[in-house]
Design a protein around this nucleic acid. Sequence first.
RNA 1: GCCGCUAUCGUCUAGGGGACUAGGACGCUGGCUUCUCAUGCCAGAAACCGGGGUUCGAAUCCCCGUAGCGGUACCA
Length: 460
Amino acid sequence: MTSENPRLRFAPSPTGALHIGGARTALYNWLEAHHEGGALVLRIEDTDRERSTAENVEQILDALRWLELDWDEGPISQASRAERHAAALKQLRASGAAFRDAAAGKDVEAWKAGHGAGRGYRGTPTEEAGAAVRLRVPDEGATVVVDLIRGPISFPNASYDDFVIARGDDTVLYNFAVAIDDAEMGITDVVRGDDHLSNTPKQLLVLAALGHEPPRYAHLPLLHGPDGKKLSKRHGAASVQELRDAGYLPAAVRNYLALLGWGTDDDTTLMSTAELVRRFRVTDVGKAAAIFDEKKLRWLNGRFMREMPLEEYIAAVAAHLDRDPADPALRAACEIVQEKAQTLEEVWPLIGFLFEPPVADEVAWRKVMKPDSGPMLAAAADALASVEPFDPEAIEAALAPVLDRFEVKAGKLYQPIRVAITGGSVSPGIFESISALGREKTLERVAAAVERLAAAATDE
RNA sequence: GCCGCUAUCGUCUAGGGGACUAGGACGCUGGCUUCUCAUGCCAGAAACCGGGGUUCGAAUCCCCGUAGCGGUACCA
């Protein structure tokens, strides 16, 4: 980008929640703006009065905030610029570039049936009130979109209809409003989804009719679901809030999304946001559509989870579990679980036993508890009863003699202890778990297991 | 139908005429580490959509085909 003060915009339409495709578009705009030291404007494209809702706007802003993608101006409601749109409409009607046309959809179809399929509809001006306003499109020549990612793309003017720019009541349509807003808001670079590529000539035509210089355009390839189709609600975690609820970290999502359609030449995969800003260039974005793959996001998220400073980790876990980050028990739990979980959502199943009574996993019990487990557990309890201090190192040292006495491998003793204190066969390190649980609860739970084992033995 | 875009391992990608025996990452398989589960480390399988050109030489350039996708609304 060569401009002195680049201005970019992210312009979502509030007709639904922010999808990961939209999130990626927002991220790319944000990265490009930051890389170039430009400004990012947030504009809400709410000219669709039927489908735009305040709830959706809130949800989009919420998603952007969660992703920590901030903006310099806005949010600006496109609908609030209606006066500017009306002025532009008046100007074009006065110059003859736009005109009222009473034709309805089926009239256009009929016209095309008589003029050949590849021929764009050409309207007939009328003074009839309530007729839509169309922009006159030339039959000759072509409109060229110089795309930052794909290079120049030529569209024959003859293939475009005299398209509707305003409804019968003079409220404007998207392709008209967006061109005016981009121009009047001083937008220098439009970075948006591929689905807008075919509409760009229309916007260029509007700009030309109004005498405005067009911005630069970069059309991003679309994101597809696992089935290769356009992303929708059916394809797994499609919205940003679903990603959040699934326990992903914003930084990991940003890293992953950046990599969807863009890569580094030295194969660097794991990047901080600062590094993304430093290395990202919209001109380096690939041309082919990418498929959202949650497996890689999970891996990336796991890396971020493990490499986070403990304080940050505690804050993230506490926020996700809606618990007090100052709670010493939670802090201790975080410390022993950080290496284990790939998502925030996986944390609780691993540390829940520290806060609530263990839920016995009967499959694990049967698999782990053998006839000789009772005496071993009793011996372990004895050893644990006097350990001082009650920390992982001392606990390990205290348990070692039990291993020797029964002449068993570590797992023969540790797994029964694990099942006794956590209820299941999966948990953080056994010494850390015992220490975090505390002497009293550990002894209680081990005793309960010994009792159950003894009862089972007499039954036979 | 018409207009347009795209095409490298299952997935994300590197590659820009010779350095390609096509590299990396996720996932997968096997092994090592190990108190469980993860992690970590090592190894392995796995791709240039098809056909024509251009060229001494094509994954790279051109054309055609095929497939996928987008647009074609008084939606955005």
